[in-house]
Design a protein around this nucleic acid. Structure first.
Length: 437
RNA sequence: GUGGGUGUAGCUCAGUUGGUAGAGCGACGGACCGUGGCUCCGUAGGUCGAGGGUUCGAGACCCUUCACCCACCCCA
């Protein structure tokens, strides 16, 4: 039997409705904050991700699905190298949303010199070549926002407020989430801090794991996240970012916190919070679901240097992304289901096959009146048709039998009260539509 | 990439020291034949993931393979 690709899922039924519900909530909430929807291509040039996400990150180094045309791939296999390919021939499936949106912003000049900020949101599939496990797929879905051209710390705070509001609308209780924030500094202070941490690790190299020694050169800040207990102990004495922020970054961070306090947003400051994508500057944040065992269900931050990395003019930016699959798991762990029932409908039944044509006419009229209508297409008995009506969540059942057809009427049964009324066929659609309204 | 686990009816699973498969739920049908959700009765569904081996005989044992799940890493 044909099989789906590892780590991918078919979205259908209640699960599909859950994803749609999430995007509906996003459209409404983000729309009220002035965000417009954007859809960027699922494939981009590799360089778009390398420049944005960072060459040293795991996401870029080993998790991107590279894409080549068949002919190109044959040539590469023959020559044993992808050298000589033009940049636009080197493509990858997007592993996250920000790089592509920022690329689109550069290309379409969304934020012209002196122009107003651009606020965008998206709901798309992302692709990462990881081993699947709980809350981790190779093709998964994210909803995210990007707010470009707004350096004000109010933007950071509003982003976080909107994110927390989003979780609330999806059904998370106030105690079900933990928001963590941090500042990573900027081009003025991060390099020096990074060097301090690098030096610290090198000074304690003999006490730390191999991985952390490697991290010293590649991404020293990541050593704070090491799972090795001893490394954690050592890193507890490492210089913290808060004492090493430049004045501008310190004030920005303080202002963000003041705004969050005013909005009544609970947060935990985590000086070791280091997001895995290199483009972040200053404010970073992450949201964890308490229980459910899926870890982070959303995160984001400021990326004031990213537009330049993608070849645009210096333009500040901030955004976040949340994972649909993980949110569904986390909510389920808290006893909340995102999955909706099949919407209710009107079922048209016939007492015997002689009335099949009348059923056809009635369904036609009902659907033209905008009513979600179901009928039998297997020649089932009337009893069985009623069972089907139940399965389809019918609120009304229209019955057409010999008597009804003879008198030009229809029997309309209310499925919950069992009340039945006779309605002239010519008024059926209007009658049903009125009762559903 | 590393480590652990599981693959038996549509679903969740049981299958005892090897004797060619069962339950619950679901589906379908029926309970005086133009009326559902409850109850009762009945019916149908399985190349036991795939291939090979040991054996008189394997769902159970061995090998190979595929798929999925979980954990590490990293992240949503």
């Amino acid at each position: 039997m044909a099989q789906k690709v590892q780590g991918t899922e078919d979205l259908f039924g209640g699960y599909m409705r859950a994803w749609q519900h999430m995007t509906d909530v996003a459209r409404e909430l983000f729309g009220s904050y002035g965000f417009d929807m954007i859809e960027t291509p699922a494939i981009e040039q590799v360089d778009t991700f390398v420049h944005g996400i960072g060459e040293s990150t795991d996401v870029v180094r080993k998790e991107m699905f590279r894409v080549f045309s068949g002919a190109l791939l044959d040539n590469m296999l023959e020559s044993g190298s992808e050298k000589g390919l033009k940049p636009r021939q080197r493509m990858a499936m997007r592993p996250e949303g920000t790089a592509g949106v920022v690329r689109a912003a550069v290309e379409n000049n969304f934020v012209p010199q002196g122009g107003a900020p651009k606020k965008l949101w998206y709901a798309e599939a992302m692709f990462r070549g990881e081993r699947p496990q709980k809350g981790r797929l190779r093709q998964f879905h994210q909803v995210g926002v990007e707010w470009l051209g707004a350096p004000d710390p109010a933007a950071d705070a509003e982003c976080i407020i909107m994110l927390m509001e989003f979780y609330k609308h999806l059904g998370f209780g106030p105690s079900g989430l933990r928001l963590m924030i941090n500042s990573m500094g900027d081009a003025a202070c991060r390099p020096a801090y990074r060097e301090k941490v690098r030096q610290f690790i090198l000074d304690h190299a003999d006490e730390m794991c191999d991985e952390c020694r490697e991290r010293a050169e590649i991404n020293p800040l990541r050593a704070f996240d090491c799972k090795n207990e001893h490394c954690r102990e050592v890193m507890a004495d490492a210089p913290l970012v808060h004492q090493n922020l430049c004045d501008e970054c310190a004030e920005h961070y303080a202002q963000v916190k003041r705004y969050l306090d005013e909005a009544g947003i609970a947060y935990v400051e985590d000086p070791t919070l280091v997001r895995g994508l290199d483009y972040y500057t200053r404010t970073v944040f992450e949201v964890e679901a308490i229980g459910g065992g899926v870890g982070a269900i959303g995160g984001g931050g400021r990326y004031d240097g990213l537009m330049e990395l993608e070849g645009g003019k210096p333009t500040p930016g901030i955004g976040f992304a949340v994972g649909f699959e993980r949110i569904a798991l986390a909510l389920a762990a808290q006893g909340v289901s995102l999955e909706g029932d099949e919407p209710s409908c009107v079922y048209v039944a016939c007492a015997s096959p002689e009335q099949r044509d009348a059923v056809f006419s009635a369904t036609l009229a009902l659907r033209q009146a905008g009513v979600r209508t179901e009928a039998d297409y297997q020649g089932r008995s009337l009893k069985s048709q009623f069972k089907q009506a139940d399965k389809h969540n019918a609120c009304l059942c229209v019955v057409l039998g010999a008597d009804e057809v003879a008198s030009g009427s229809a029997t309309v049964r209310d499925m919950s009260t069992h009340e039945q009324v006779s309605v002239p066929m010519s008024e059926l659609a209007a009658h049903v539509a009125a009762r559903l309204a």
